[in-house]
Simulated scan of single mutants.
Amino acid sequence: MTLPTPMTGVVPPVCTPLTPDNEVDTASLTRLVDHLVGAGVDGLFVLGSSSEAAYLPDRFRRTVVETVVGHVAGQLPVLAGAIDMATWRVLDHACAAVDAGADGIVATAPFYTRTHPVEIAAHFRALAERTGVPVFAYDLPVSVHTKLAPELVLELAAEGVLAGLKDSSGDEGAMRRVVVGARKRADITGFSVLTGSEVTVDSALAMGADGVVPGLGNVDPEGYVRLYRYCREGDWQRARAEQERLCALFGMVRVGDPARMGGSSSGLGAFKAALHLRGIIACPATAQPQVPLSADEVEQVGKRLAAAGLL
C-alpha cells in the first residue's frame, strides 16, 4: 500500500515470536499482529531492534516480512528493517523485504567500520534509488556508534531520499532540530519524525514529532494509542497520566539480573514474557546468545502487568 505522508501515529516494532526449537512461530506472529491491529495502531515495523533483527538469519527475516505483510493484507502499512554493516549487505535485505511486500524500509547508518557523513549520505541515496520505496533513517547510536547529524537528515529529506526519521538516539535536542528544520524548510514536505522512546512520547509529540515506534507497544498497544490521541487532542493532563502509567510498565525491562545478562536479554525477554503471560505468543524464547529470564524475573514482569491493569 502507499505510505501516508507524513507517516503518523503509533507504529510498534513487532516482536518476533520463536518456537522452543528456535524457528519463527508464525502462528504467534499473526496473533501478535491481530493484537496490534485490533488496538488501533497506525502501522507496523518489522525487523527492528525489538524484533531481534540483529539475531535473525536471513531466512527468518524473509519469513517475518512475508507473514506480516500477508496477514495484514493492506490494512496497515508495513515498514521493514534492513539493518546490516554496509550498503551492499543492506541492499540485499532491503530488496528482499520489498520483494516480500514491505511498503517502506528502515535502515541505520553503516557500522563496524568508521564512516564519514559523505559515506552515510551515499548509503541512504543508494537505498532510495535501488529499492524505489520510502526509506526511513534509523538513528541508533548506542548500537551503530554513529549519531546521525540533524543537518544531514534534513539534507537528505530535502533531496527526497529520506521519507522520515526513527529517532532512538535519546538526544531530544537533536530530534527537535530535525522537527523544527523540517517544518521551516519549504523544500521538505511529507517528512516524518518518529520517536523510538517509550517514556517521553508526550514531550516528543508536544515538540512536533509525528508519531512513536514503541517496543512496549507490543505489550500495551492500547495505551500508546490512547496516549497519541490525548496528545493530538491537546489533553495534556490525561496524556501525562497515561505516559506515567506506561513509564511504570516499562520498568519491566530492568527485571533481568545485570550480573548474568545484558540489557537486550532483560528488555526483550521482558516484552516476550509479558506477551506470553497475556496469552498472545506461545513461547517467550529469545534468540541466542541472549539469556532467558528466570522464573522470579518473569514473576516480576507479571506484577508490572497486573499493576498496569493488563492481567
Rank of each mutant, 00 (worst) to 15 (best):
D202G: 11
L249R: 07
L194R: 01
I188P: 06
R240N: 10
G223A: 14
T200N: 01
P221I: 09
Y224I: 12
G256C: 09
A174K: 04
F250Y: 15
G223V: 13
E242L: 08
L165M: 06
V179Q: 02
R226H: 11
Q243E: 15
G170Q: 05
D171F: 01
G211C: 09
T200D: 00
A209K: 11
L246N: 04
V225K: 03
G215T: 09
A182R: 04
R254Q: 06
R254K: 07
R229Y: 04
V253W: 10
R229S: 13
L227Q: 12
G256D: 07
R176G: 01
Q237K: 12
L216D: 13
A248V: 13
K166M: 00
P221D: 11
G208R: 01
S197C: 00
E233T: 11
G223F: 11
E172L: 14
D235I: 09
F191K: 03
C247F: 11
S169F: 00
D210T: 01
R177E: 15
V201N: 01
M252P: 14
V212L: 06
E233G: 07
E198M: 10
D167C: 02
L216S: 11
V219I: 14
C231T: 12
G217L: 08
A174N: 06
D187Y: 08
W236V: 09
S197R: 03
I188G: 10
R185C: 03
V213Y: 03
G234T: 07
V201E: 07
G217A: 11
E233N: 13
A206Q: 06
G223E: 13
G196Y: 04
W236L: 15
V225M: 12
V201H: 06
F191A: 03
R254L: 07
D210K: 03
E242K: 06
A209Y: 01
Y224G: 12
D210Q: 07
Y230M: 10
A182W: 08
G251R: 01
L162R: 03
Q243F: 05
D202M: 14
D171P: 01
